[in-house]
């Protein structure tokens, strides 16, 4: 009875359908946008911090003067950190989310879905950004490292004050790109029931049996979010760098372009 009332109230045409869905459900979509943004912003920021830590483990180099124990520790940290990166880059985030959430539940740990979502995005972002940072460090002129060594800066301080600041500045477009990717990829978290934008779109679609209209609406909202984000990032970089030219692709398959003036 109630269902029939809902179904009969919506216009049959496409544009009318979209307008009706939006007018009657914008609160749900806003809620979805809120979670999508919270998860992708927090996940990207925390992922960046975690990637700095993992990168430190990843870039250990065995030197001639190291003791046997130091060598063992360094090999272990390289092995663990690269396994981490390989695993998270080598499996779909949707599968990771399912394993993580249901796995923990099976073991008796019930964590809030939102926290689970943020954690999964964080772990994933950390894996990708570790690779970004590592290639960034490899791209830093070796003279910077020798300069730091020559004044006796210990490695930790060298990375803290000399290497990471330069790498992070060079890698900013790639980090921004990761944020954009995360805004879209939070959609897969609907598999564990995180009420982000895609999840909301799905439930609205189910209410009206109007899948195309609902998902076109969701796509439009994603597009607006991504366009706004890339423009904000570009503006931010301009403020930081004067006239340097950066571009933010919105897909991972497009190479990142960095032009220093």
């Amino acid at each position: 009875m109630f269902t029939q009332m809902i179904l009969s109230s919506i216009p049959d045409d496409f544009i009318g359908g979209i307008t009706h869905i939006f007018e009657n459900n914008y609160e749900l979509y806003l809620e979805g946008i809120k979670y999508t943004l919270i998860i992708s912003l927090l996940g990207t920021s925390l992922g960046l911090l975690l990637s700095l830590l993992i990168t430190i483990f990843r870039i250990q180099e065995i030197e001639k003067r190291d003791s046997l124990f130091t060598r063992f520790l360094k090999r272990l940290s390289i092995f663990v950190s690269s396994s981490y990166v390989e695993f998270f880059r080598g499996t779909p985030m949707m599968v990771q989310a399912a394993i993580f959430y249901y796995g923990l539940a099976t073991l008796g740990f019930r964590i809030p879905i939102l926290i689970a979502g943020i954690l999964i995005v964080t772990l994933n972002t950390a894996a990708y950004l570790t690779e970004v940072l590592r290639s960034g460090i490899n791209g830093i002129d070796k003279g910077q490292i020798e300069g730091a060594k020559s004044i006796g800066l210990p490695k930790s301080k060298m990375y803290r004050y000399i290497i990471f600041p330069q790498v992070l500045k060079n890698m900013f477009p790639a980090i921004g790109n990761e944020l954009v990717v995360n805004i879209k990829d939070t959609a897969v978290l609907s598999v564990i029931g995180v009420s982000e934008l895609f999840y909301m779109g799905k439930s609205v679609a189910g209410t009206y049996y109007r899948y195309t209209e609902s998902f076109v609406l969701v796509a439009l909202i994603y597009l607006i979010l991504v366009l706004m984000t890339t423009r904000l990032l570009t503006l931010f970089v301009r403020l930081l760098n004067g006239n340097d030219k950066y571009s933010f692709p919105s897909s991972q398959s497009v190479p990142v372009e960095v032009n220093h003036g």
Partner: peptide
């Protein structure tokens, strides 16, 4: 090659 710190 000088090796000054470029970020400073």
């Amino acid at each position: 090659s000088f090796n000054l710190f470029n970020n400073l």
